[in-house]
Amino acid sequence: MAEKIATRAAYGDALVELAEKYPELVVFDADLAGATMTKGFMKNYPERFFDMGIAECNMVGVAAGMATCGLKPFVNTFAMFAAGRAWEQVRNSVCYPHLNVKVVGSHGGLSVGEDGATHQCIEDFALMRAIPGMMVLCPYDSHEMRLATEALLYYEGPAYMRLGRLAVETVTDTIEGYRFESGKAAKLREGSDVTIIANGMMVQMALAAAEMLAADGIHARVLDMHTIKPLDQQAVLEAAQETGCIVTTEEANVLGGLGAAVCEYVSEVCPVPVIRNGVQDQFGRSGKAPQVLKAYGLCAEKIAEMARTAIALKR
């Protein structure tokens, strides 16, 4: 069985590994270094680490100022605060002047579990995607997260990246032909009957759903859409043309996120059935993460059910 590592842990390790290679990298946190996993960078590079306290808006403003001096700031807090509380500063102080600041939201989605609806940020994709010029990412596993973190250091401009709290299986480092490229989907499984497009921890659910479908003779293509914006339109178009129907799955509100992005594009260029798996425009609730995810249909069984429905609709 593949090793399970939380993407927030992989991200924290990546910051430390990349720090020497990128001396211009500076890291900000809002009193959550132990949770966002920036604590390793704080320990090893204290002169390049800035704990701003519970002042997320100020943190973004200071990071924007440092970006104008040629530094590469990564600002870190929970997704609820990064995308919610500091949204105005992200929009006006970072994205409007197109500054090189990376906003990193940890503990995104329902898998925050017991912390409940107030901290289960399901709106971050929609909020960040709506800002002009903002790149939006949600990597799947530890290997992909490390690659995404370095890719952001190369990328000049604002970006938002979501991290997960729960550990997920690391599989992308074992898939033949896998490569990470911002804005390009990774095809993890071939298929001709339906395409499942996923991001974040829902990729593992999509792969499990594909196995369930295979047992019934249904061949599901699985796309890891780690970059929501810009969307890999070519991969989506090929999926629509070659499989005839699509299921999207994300640990977020179906309004404004990955599913919405796919629907918007497909409806314009190649209308096919698209069914969106995700949070159906409602708040989360407190509970053990696996139970909460299942209660909201964020599981392999529900994805497989939706895939069968999508296949029936294309007929």
Score class of each variant (00 low, 15 high):
H219Y: 13
A209S: 07
F74Q: 01
V168C: 09
H107Y: 15
S267E: 07
A64I: 09
E301D: 14
T243Y: 10
G244W: 02
G34R: 01
V171G: 06
M59T: 06
L258Y: 04
E242Y: 08
P46G: 06
L71S: 06
T118I: 11
P271K: 14
F125L: 15
A300W: 02
L207M: 15
M212W: 01
Y160C: 01
I196N: 09
H98C: 08
E305G: 02
G183Q: 04
L147C: 07
A215I: 06
D115Y: 01
V203N: 04
R221M: 14
D224R: 08
G284D: 05
A10K: 08
R129C: 13
M205Y: 03
C138M: 08
E88M: 09
L223W: 03
L298Y: 11
Q204E: 13
A10R: 05
T170M: 15
M42D: 08
E88D: 15
T248Y: 08
G259I: 07
E242K: 15
V94G: 02
N100L: 00
L223V: 07
K102W: 00
E181G: 03
V274F: 11
L188N: 07
T243N: 10
H219A: 15
C245S: 14
L313A: 10
V272A: 03
A2E: 14
A310T: 06
T68Q: 14
F78I: 08
L32E: 04
L255Q: 12
G12C: 12
A126H: 02
G157V: 00
P46F: 05
